[in-house]
């Protein structure tokens, strides 16, 4: 028993080293939580009227994506991932998506072309927009792109912002993320209280539970096996004793 335990243990340690990764994204994701998003006037593609961010989030909670159409970098894969993730969701109609350009050069035609690129121009869940109050809008989120005049590109994060029906930012997601993380964000924009979460810095395989936003429950982790192990080993010891004393009697 003990030998197996040691083998198992070594294996577990090894896999930990393989999977351990270090990033401090969580730190910046915590920015501007419960702050109000700036109610910027929006020009939506496919519509001539001026609308506002408030008129969008007061209808349904909102996921805001910040892009610029001339981006050579992360904007395209990140929008693609978002649209794919949303397709994978089982119920994906209880929120809207707002894609806003933070580049003053972008006009409505650019945004319409971007929507067509993903075949989302007729999808009513998705809103592609430009705004005249770029600075106020991105400051209220804590989004801080830097213009690089040599490459003629913005140096920026891939940021998704979750906004609830009151216009409060409930969660940010940095970088290209999985559908599970997106679920967590959707839960938060619907005001579901999550009493705790793990820091992503130590993706430790010995954790007892991993929160699964899909089922809204905690999935048992390997650590839970360790908590149950004393009872299991005791049970085995008793069985061994019984078998041995039976043999001795026979």
């Amino acid at each position: 028993m003990f030998r197996y335990f040691i083998c198992f243990f070594t294996l577990a340690c090894f896999s930990f080293f393989v999977y351990a990764n270090d990033n401090h994204s969580e730190l910046r994701e915590e920015q501007n939580i419960y702050g109000k998003i700036y109610n910027a006037p929006l020009h939506l593609s496919g519509s001539s009227k001026v609308t506002s961010v408030e008129s969008l989030y007061s209808r349904k909670p909102l996921i805001v994506a910040l892009v610029f159409t001339r981006c050579y970098g992360i904007c395209n894969p990140y929008l693609l991932q978002l649209s794919e993730n949303i397709k994978q969701l089982q119920s994906n109609t209880d929120f809207n998506v707002l894609v806003v350009s933070f580049d003053p050069r972008d006009n409505l035609k650019d945004m319409t072309n971007l929507a067509k690129q993903y075949r989302l121009e007729n999808n009513r869940q998705w809103n592609f927009a430009t705004t005249d109050s770029i600075n106020e809008f991105i400051n209220s989120i804590g989004f801080n792109p830097k213009w690089d005049s040599i490459t003629q590109q913005f140096d920026h994060d891939a940021l998704l912002v979750g906004v609830n029906e009151k216009g409060l930012i409930t969660k940010n997601l940095l970088g290209i993320r999985t559908v599970d993380d997106l679920q967590l964000m959707i839960r938060s924009i619907h005001n579901v209280f999550i009493p705790s979460y793990r820091l992503p810095t130590k993706s430790n395989i010995f954790s007892c539970f991993n929160y699964d936003p899909k089922t809204q429950t905690n999935r048992p982790g390997l650590g839970l096996l360790f908590v149950a192990l004393p009872a299991i080993i005791t049970f085995l010891i008793v069985i061994i004793i019984v078998i041995k004393s039976k043999r001795a009697a026979a």
Partner: peptide
């Protein structure tokens, strides 16, 4: 350590 607890 390693976890964040939310207290309201």
């Amino acid at each position: 350590p390693g976890y964040v607890n939310n207290l309201r």
